[in-house]
Structures are given as C-alpha cells and as structure tokens.
Amino acid sequence: MKALAALLLSAAPSLAQGYSDAQGGVVRWLDKLTNQTGDVELQLGQSATNGRLTIQLDACRYPSDNPAAEAEAHLTILDSTRDGPVFTGWMLASSPALSALDHPRYDVWVLRCVVPGYEPPEVAPDAPDDATTEGDGQ
C-alpha cells in the first residue's frame, strides 16, 4: 500500500501539468519487411497511407510549458488487408512501447506535436566510419 501511495505522489506533478492541443503531429513508420521508413506530418483529422497502412491523427497534445518534453497523440491506424482498425488509442513519444501498434510487419510511433514557433533541435549526422583522425599515421 505504501508503494502505491509513493507512486501516486511521485506522479502528481506530471498529472497537474497543463497540456495544450496542437493542430498537427509527426509520426514515423517502419516497414519491417522492406526496411523502408519515413516521417509524415499530419494535421488533425488528416491521414496518410504508406504501404498497407493508413495512419490518421485524431489529436496531439504537449506540455504547455515545454513542447520538447513530450507528445501524446491519438491515432487510428488501418491495414488495407484487415477489417477495422489495427490500432486506435494514445501513443506517447517518450514511451512508444507503452501503447504500441501490435503488427507483424509495421511499426508506428509518435515523434512530436507540431507547435507554432517551436523547431525541434537538429540532430548532427554521425561521422563517417572511414574518417581519419589525428595520430592514425595518415
């Protein structure tokens, strides 16, 4: 019982944090069979098709005071070979495995919400493997 109370108290600040609704979001998809991947930016209610999957963004929200901290998106995902959605629910950008798409061929996860005036930091590309370094005799 004490462990449960401690867990609830530690989660209280995140529950009290205010969230804002975004007008769009960015999701990434992976076709595990072909190894193709891509990012797609969707507006609320918009959908995109990649292979057999159609991904629709129903909602996207983020912490009002820190858009980079988290994104929560409600997605509806359809597979053209199946009846009904293969996924419908909330996905968290920071913990995609908590509510993941359970599909043998595809993975889909949320990257971020689209927030006006906010640009996510650029990720520097890795140095090539054949780059020479000082002291390697060349």
Rank of each mutant, 00 (worst) to 15 (best):
A71Q: 01
D65Q: 08
N35I: 14
T81M: 14
G24D: 14
A93L: 10
E70S: 11
F87M: 04
G137P: 11
L92R: 03
G84C: 10
G51D: 07
C113I: 03
G45M: 11
W90A: 05
E70I: 09
D83M: 08
L8T: 13
E122I: 00
P121K: 11
T54F: 01
S95H: 05
Q43K: 15
G24F: 14
L101Y: 06
C60S: 09
Q56C: 10
C113D: 02
H74D: 10
Q23S: 05
S64T: 15
A6G: 05
E134N: 04
G25T: 13
V110R: 02
V26K: 12
A5R: 10
P125G: 01
P63V: 15
L57V: 02
A124Q: 12
A127K: 07
R28I: 15
N50S: 11
A48N: 10
A59W: 02
V114T: 07
P104S: 05
A59S: 02
A59K: 10
D129S: 04
A68D: 09
P67E: 13
L111V: 15
Q56L: 09
A124P: 01
A3E: 14
S20N: 13
T49D: 04
N66P: 09
G89V: 13
T37R: 14
D130N: 08
I77P: 00
V86D: 03
V110K: 00
H103D: 15
L57T: 00
L78R: 09
Q46H: 05
P116C: 02
A71Y: 01
G38T: 10
G135K: 13
E134H: 12
V123A: 06
W29S: 07
G117L: 12
A5M: 05
L33M: 11
G51N: 06
A68I: 08
R61T: 06
L53W: 06
G38R: 08
A6F: 12
L15Q: 05
Q23C: 05
A127F: 10
P67T: 11
L9G: 00
V86Y: 10
W29M: 07
G84K: 12
L111A: 12
T37Q: 15
L33S: 14
D129A: 09
R61H: 11
D129V: 07
E119P: 00
A5F: 07
N66I: 00
L44M: 15
G45C: 01
A3G: 04
P128I: 09
A124G: 04
L78N: 07
S10G: 01
R28H: 13
R112K: 07
